[in-house]
Amino acid sequence: MSTDPLLRHDDLQEAVPRQRFLLEDTGFDEVPPKYRRFYRKWRGPGDALAANEVICPVCKVVIRSTRELRPGDRVYCMPCMSRLVVVRAEDGGLEARVAY
């Protein structure tokens, strides 16, 4: 299993390359150490999400990828073990929906 929560992604098949991100550990300790940099706590309504981040609607943790996220991406939230699909929200941003 890849450590990045962005699942089954192939850079070579995309016309527009994705922006890459270097992730730092933010102190999130609710998953095993090698996965910790991929998650952070959400700081509430004023917390702006970067292009590589999406909030898990189940447990409210921010999921972070090393790549920019796009609608249709499938991501995994390890703290609550939810499988999610990224969609375009009404406000133009990205949001995640649970896939059962």
């Binding site: 609710e30 189940v58 609550c80 649970v98």
Partner: peptide
């Protein structure tokens, strides 16, 4: 609780 609510939704959702 994050794990517990996650289990509730994901397991029961299916």
């Amino acid at each position: 609780e994050r794990r517990h609510v996650g289990f509730g939704e994901n397991r029961i959702g299916s």
